[in-house]
Nucleic acid binder design. Structure first.
Lengths: 211, 211
DNA sequence: TATGGAAACAATCGAACGTTCTTTTTTCGT
DNA sequence: ACGAAAAAAGAACGTTCGATTGTTTCCATA
């Protein structure tokens, strides 16, 4: 047998992509074999090459498409908001919800960067920097206006994003708390952490040397 | 040639361990071949089997030893402290410093869990749960005493640990900020996030439904 | 200085890998 | 109804992998 009944290129392409995300998420890029992927879709391994040039480009396509989707939707979420606190809350809420609903894609984009070839990795890192820059800008604006008290926006950005992204390591749809509950809890943590306390954070930083 | 001049079992064992950490950190467990590891140490690949049963047990040994070290030192760091805020600050400072100085080990322990066989993974997950439990306990105690305002200690634990652990993704010894600076910044973020604000966090959580 | 154990080499195994190529079958526009 | 194009099968490739085995060399000790 050869071409199977009812086969359709577009549908197969999508199935391959979905199965790729699933298997890379579960086993890791290196550990996923193309035979495994083909079996998941119901093909022979050689047939996959009608749909991508090689294994590496499959990974890159998945990661790049995800990053573009993430950034596009983030800009939508912030659109129209100007006050730093509003923008911060919107960013936190969006990031959390996105990472709860796209756990697999997010995990891959964060963890398989090391498996990308140099050129591809550079592209993805640049995209990630742009995404982080959005939060960095919010924190700087808020600090400038006196709404936030951040000793170092760069570090706070890393810290906050790490905290939020971590949710995709343990969130379960059928868990104890709803997405809304979790967004509320995390929002409290973040806004509390950057809240203006009266005394400059830089001073607090210098007084605490050594521990 | 066979046994090389000056060869020493204990020294080789340590060199293999170090090289293993280095290569797994750089390339990932699956991507690291034993030939690569052997070359790094200056051996033939077959000779490695004098030092471990198989590739999997090398990974497990590295992760388990790291987890035991982490927990032992964490208990030391908290030893003698009773006030929740003191214990929280000590936990944050310890966790950060440890993760800044043992980046590779930490990264492996967090990222290569998926590469562990079921039994080994269960052991490591249990250890990690115990480590997380230390922070969870601090938050609960602080909440009970009214020192902290945490809507959900379990979630706050995950959030804080994710935030702190994330530092090993970007911290560089020759970076702009010292370890003390970073500890101060992160400590502010954490203590601010769990600070008692007056209004119960649970109420804040329910009022914010939807976004 | 002979000897037993420790340490490493060298060769090799079968399996699995990513990839390429040819062939076969189905689909679809004319 | 026919022929081209699309879709997939299936076989084969060279390579690399983890792992095993038998042999050689070094070293401590008696």
């Amino acid at each position: 047998m050869a071409r199977t009944v009812g086969s359709n290129g577009a549908r197969t392409a999508q199935a391959i992509r979905q199965a790729g995300v699933k298997l890379i998420y579960k086993h890791g890029y290196e550990a996923m074999s193309l035979r495994q992927l083909a079996a998941e879709v119901g093909l022979q391994s050689g047939s996959l090459y009608k749909y991508f040039d090689n294994k590496q480009s499959l990974l890159f396509d998945i990661v790049r498409d995800h990053m573009e989707d993430l950034m596009g939707k983030a800009e939508e979420a912030l659109d129209g908001l100007t006050a730093p606190m509003d923008r911060l809350r919107a960013y936190v809420g969006f990031h959390l919800r996105y990472h709860m609903t796209r756990k697999a894609h997010v995990f891959i984009a964060n963890m398989e960067i090391r498996s990308l070839e140099d050129g591809h990795r550079a592209e993805v890192v640049a995209m990630r920097r742009r995404y982080e820059g959005m939060l960095d800008e919010i924190l700087r604006q808020g600090a400038a206006e006196g709404a936030f008290n951040v000793a170092d926006p760069r570090v706070s950005t890393y810290a906050i994003i790490s905290m939020l992204t971590g949710i995709c390591m343990w969130y379960r749809t059928d868990g104890r708390l709803s997405q809304d509950d979790l967004v509320a809890i995390y929002t409290d943590l973040v806004t509390g952490g950057v809240a203006a306390t009266g005394l400059p954070a830089a001073a607090a930083a210098t007084t605490l040397k050594r521990a």
